[in-house]
Design a protein around this nucleic acid. Sequence first.
DNA 1: TATAGAGATTCCAGTTACTGGAGAGTCAAG
DNA 2: CTTGACTCTCCAGTAACTGGAATCTCTATA
Lengths: 158, 158
Amino acid sequence: MVKIVANAHQAALEAASEGARKAASERTFFNIGKAAKASELPVKTVRYYADVGLVEPAARSKAGYRLYDEIDIERLRFIKSARSFDFSVDDCRELLGFYQNDQRSSRDVKQMALKRLTEIDQKMRELEKLRQELARLAHACPGDEHPGCPILGSFARS
Amino acid sequence: MVKIVANAHQAALEAASEGARKAASERTFFNIGKAAKASELPVKTVRYYADVGLVEPAARSKAGYRLYDEIDIERLRFIKSARSFDFSVDDCRELLGFYQNDQRSSRDVKQMALKRLTEIDQKMRELEKLRQELARLAHACPGDEHPGCPILGSFARS
DNA sequence: TATAGAGATTCCAGTTACTGGAGAGTCAAG
DNA sequence: CTTGACTCTCCAGTAACTGGAATCTCTATA
């Protein structure tokens, strides 16, 4: 039996009792609005992830509505987390692949994490340099009604 | 006397008809390649800045070549510096406006610098949080040939 | 049952600051 | 006169969405 949940109240009920009943032949679908809410992503973004083949809905309704099952929603949540670390969408695709592959090695995942980490470190070093220099300039600037300004001066000179 | 560099023999005429911005005598023009080299910007970028009205060439040759004078090149260099602090192109437009306006107040410039500074600080705080959390996860990951991985686990859970 | 309103669809455009490339014209040197 | 280096304009693509238009579809209510 296939169930489609499109109503908020009903969806809540289904979601609530989700753990209790994964009875074999029963399947609960969520349309995009519910999937978005459940994964805390904007609808537009969920649709985008489907478009780029990152998380495609398990099915479509007769009317063409995207239908997400619980595993899809898990995937969406996974992506949301990975994206929050600024992994690119492509990296997310790869991470999701690892996630779904129980033959993976944690080595591969760790490698990606370390790579991302060095990128973050690099970015932070750059920002720190900018911050220092800009702070120095701002500090030297009187910030009054006169035109004399070491910030502009520095930009002009360098 | 008007001096023209880089194949721009018609520039004199055009510049003259535009009205003298430099007292009547010597004017040297550079075509986009020279201007790019002088400002250490890619040709494409210089052209782009012209397109978006950030730094428009003082003149055009008969054949339609962009002709930059020294002041233009100063502007390009100014923009390059400002951009290196990650001021947006719009902010650069504003900063350039200040730079070229001797009625400016250093207050306005300083305000922009401080705003940029808080943005940088904000970004650094975010990155620092990411870095810590990701480092924690990576540290906890064995990085071996087994599938068990706290990084994936964390993404799945959160 | 008619209908209003919420929510879904696709497709297109815009965001930022460029960058790459095609096809064509221009210039100086040999 | 040809060659090669430059330059021109215009179009497309980048990353990861986001906004909006025009058009269904579903459901709750009068």
